[in-house]
Protein backbone atom coordinates (compact mmCIF):
# COMPACT_ATOMS: atom_id res chain seq x y z
CA UNK A 1 0.00 0.00 0.00
CA UNK A 2 2.76 2.42 0.99
CA UNK A 3 4.55 2.02 -2.32
CA UNK A 4 1.37 2.51 -4.29
CA UNK A 5 0.50 5.65 -2.34
CA UNK A 6 3.95 7.15 -2.87
CA UNK A 7 3.62 6.53 -6.62
CA UNK A 8 0.27 8.35 -6.53
CA UNK A 9 1.72 11.20 -4.55
CA UNK A 10 4.63 11.55 -6.95
CA UNK A 11 2.21 11.77 -9.86
CA UNK A 12 0.06 14.41 -8.17
CA UNK A 13 2.97 16.49 -6.82
CA UNK A 14 5.09 16.04 -9.96
CA UNK A 15 8.20 15.66 -7.81
CA UNK A 16 10.05 12.54 -6.65
CA UNK A 17 11.11 14.16 -3.38
CA UNK A 18 7.87 12.87 -1.80
CA UNK A 19 9.26 9.31 -2.16
CA UNK A 20 12.58 10.16 -0.59
CA UNK A 21 11.58 12.37 2.31
CA UNK A 22 8.45 11.00 3.97
CA UNK A 23 8.23 13.94 6.35
CA UNK A 24 8.41 16.69 3.76
CA UNK A 25 5.80 19.42 4.33
CA UNK A 26 3.53 19.17 1.30
CA UNK A 27 1.60 22.46 1.41
CA UNK A 28 4.29 24.87 2.58
CA UNK A 29 6.83 23.57 0.09
CA UNK A 30 4.33 24.11 -2.78
CA UNK A 31 4.14 20.41 -3.58
CA UNK A 32 0.38 20.33 -3.02
CA UNK A 33 -2.17 23.08 -3.64
CA UNK A 34 -5.99 23.03 -3.59
CA UNK A 35 -6.03 21.28 -6.97
CA UNK A 36 -3.46 18.65 -6.03
CA UNK A 37 -5.15 18.07 -2.69
CA UNK A 38 -8.51 17.33 -4.34
CA UNK A 39 -6.83 15.10 -6.93
CA UNK A 40 -5.03 13.19 -4.21
CA UNK A 41 -8.26 12.56 -2.27
CA UNK A 42 -9.99 11.31 -5.43
CA UNK A 43 -7.03 9.03 -6.27
CA UNK A 44 -6.99 7.62 -2.73
CA UNK A 45 -10.70 6.83 -3.00
CA UNK A 46 -10.29 5.23 -6.45
CA UNK A 47 -7.20 3.18 -5.54
CA UNK A 48 -7.77 2.17 -1.92
CA UNK A 49 -11.52 2.65 -1.54
CA UNK A 50 -10.87 4.95 1.41
CA UNK A 51 -13.02 8.09 1.39
CA UNK A 52 -11.63 11.23 2.99
CA UNK A 53 -13.92 14.25 2.87
CA UNK A 54 -12.12 17.46 1.80
CA UNK A 55 -13.79 19.50 4.53
CA UNK A 56 -13.35 16.90 7.22
CA UNK A 57 -9.67 17.24 7.99
CA UNK A 58 -7.42 20.15 8.76
CA UNK A 59 -4.54 20.42 6.33
CA UNK A 60 -2.13 20.07 9.25
CA UNK A 61 -3.43 16.51 9.76
CA UNK A 62 -2.41 15.38 6.29
CA UNK A 63 0.56 17.53 5.33
CA UNK A 64 3.31 14.89 5.02
CA UNK A 65 3.52 11.53 3.14
CA UNK A 66 3.82 9.73 6.49
CA UNK A 67 0.65 11.32 7.85
CA UNK A 68 -1.28 10.38 4.71
CA UNK A 69 -0.11 6.78 4.98
CA UNK A 70 -1.13 6.66 8.63
CA UNK A 71 -4.57 8.06 7.84
CA UNK A 72 -5.26 5.54 5.09
CA UNK A 73 -4.07 2.68 7.33
CA UNK A 74 -6.36 3.83 10.12
CA UNK A 75 -9.36 3.91 7.82
CA UNK A 76 -8.96 0.82 5.67
Amino acid sequence: MEKELLELLEKVCEDSIVKEDLDVELFESDLLDSLGFAELLAEIELTFGVFISPSEIERSEINTPNKIIAMIKARS
Partner: peptide
Protein backbone atom coordinates in the same frame (compact mmCIF):
# COMPACT_ATOMS: atom_id res chain seq x y z
CA UNK B 1 -12.63 25.59 -1.85
CA UNK B 2 -13.79 22.80 0.49
CA UNK B 3 -17.39 22.41 -0.64
CA UNK B 4 -17.39 23.38 -4.33
CA UNK B 5 -13.95 23.36 -5.94
CA UNK B 6 -12.53 20.21 -4.29
CA UNK B 7 -15.70 18.25 -4.93
CA UNK B 8 -15.89 19.41 -8.53
CA UNK B 9 -12.28 18.28 -9.11
CA UNK B 10 -12.92 14.93 -7.38
CA UNK B 11 -16.01 14.31 -9.54
CA UNK B 12 -14.01 15.20 -12.68
CA UNK B 13 -11.34 12.67 -11.70
CA UNK B 14 -13.83 9.89 -11.09
CA UNK B 15 -15.81 10.54 -14.27
CA UNK B 16 -12.69 11.35 -16.32
CA UNK B 17 -14.20 14.55 -17.77
CA UNK B 18 -10.97 16.23 -18.77
CA UNK B 19 -7.73 15.12 -20.35
CA UNK B 20 -5.26 17.48 -18.77
CA UNK B 21 -4.80 18.88 -15.29
CA UNK B 22 -4.83 22.44 -16.53
CA UNK B 23 -8.17 22.03 -18.32
CA UNK B 24 -9.65 20.52 -15.18
CA UNK B 25 -8.23 23.21 -12.90
CA UNK B 26 -9.24 26.08 -15.20
CA UNK B 27 -12.77 24.80 -15.54
CA UNK B 28 -12.94 24.19 -11.79
Amino acid sequence: RDFVFSRFIMTCMKKKWFNTRLQKASFG
